[in-house]
């Protein structure tokens, strides 16, 4: 199943129990404190499950918004 902005928001919304409807695709998630490191770790598992590829430590800084999460997922899926 292809990841979308909606599916990422749904996943993060369940994990944080927060209303993410007002968060834009470019808003910072981890560095702003909207999601904590536990949710980030679950997000990595979610991404790895969908892409079938390992997320590397150097990818961490690149996934701080819904848009960057989707871009990373797309790049991992192409490999």
């Amino acid at each position: 199943m292809e990841l979308t902005s909606t599916s990422v928001r749904e996943f993060l919304g369940k994990k944080t129990r927060a209303d993410l409807t007002k968060v834009s695709d470019d808003d910072k998630l981890f560095s702003s404190g909207i999601i904590d490191s536990f949710v980030m770790i679950d997000l990595l598992g979610f991404l790895e499950k969908h892409t079938g590829a390992r997320v590397a430590p150097e990818d961490l800084q690149a996934i701080d918004s819904v848009r960057s999460i989707l871009e990373l997922a797309a790049s991992k899926s192409k490999r």
Binding site: I41, L60, Q61
Partner: peptide, 8 residues
């Protein structure tokens, strides 16, 4: 990865 996030 959790440790790396804490560092960040």
């Amino acid at each position: 990865m959790g440790l790396r996030l804490q560092q960040m």
